[in-house]
Amino acid sequence: MLSRIKNGVLGYLKDNIGIIIALFAMCIFLVIFPTTRTTFLTTKNVFNILRQNASNLFLATGMTMVIILGGIELSVGSVIALSGCVAAGCVVFLGLPEIVGFLAGILVGALVGMFNGFVICKTEIPPFIVTLASMNIAKGIALVYTTGAPIRCMTDAFKFPGAGYVGPVPTPVILMIIIFVIACFIVNRTQLGRHIYAVGGNAQAAKFSGINVSKVKFIVYTYTGVMAGIAGIVIASRLYSGQPTAGDGAEMDAIASVVVGGTSMSGGSGRLGGTLIGVLIIGVLNNGLNLMGVDSNWQYIVKGLVILLAVYVDFIRNKKAGR
């Protein structure tokens, strides 16, 4: 048992050594760089990074599964906006308890995910197109529902999931750990997890293996929708309001995290462990650039280059390993 754990840890380090080194290098740079030396490695800042990137991790767990399936999911950013607005709307407009609002937000996410999954399974339309369409639809509904203005909701209960604390630890960090453990369980420890790899690796072969390909896809897109719903609530809660523009571009950060984490866009392979590092790299990068006072317009350029570099290094490494 012990040796198995040791092998697991060693295997994890070996699989992800490139990005782990990259993450450490970034952290060390920020620890010794003059303007960030005093601010980067503080409890407050570390919790800050985790809190700000919790929602990206929720999305990235779903996105990893979708990409292993050989698909893509572009609607998660819009779902964040829609779910946050619905949650705030339930509380403010309908006077419902916060918990009901949160559940409504998650339900909205699940519905969009189910819609994506249903259309992708029942038609031959590629996931890129289907989720591009639902991205616009979800965003449109959010704008129509709110008439474009944020719905403010300042109650303590509403602030809890995004801005609250459990003891000294921010709630999103707790959620982040719970969701990551659940996702790892699904992918690594269930038959469904194996089936995801099988369908993504060779859908035709999966049919011969008696795997219900449509069911697997439907579950994964629904899961991703639920994750986007939860991310929407956490973000709305942190902003004390449901905003129809929240989550803009969140899908791209999630995809970037997954790809930096070493999951191949061609499907059939990938690891959630890598995605976690990918999320942290994107998070530390954003945080570091902010602390260094880099102009936000320049941040995009730096981020783009880092993504390209990370994926390129991984690509070269895999090529050398003959994979």
Partner: peptide, 22 residues
């Protein structure tokens, strides 16, 4: 129709009998 090419020999060997060990 058969191979999960990017996966291991182990994955390919056991995909039909997952319920025996998961």
């Amino acid at each position: 129709e058969g191979l999960y090419g990017v996966q291991s020999v182990q994955f390919n060997s056991t995909i039909e009998v997952l319920n025996e060990f998961i």
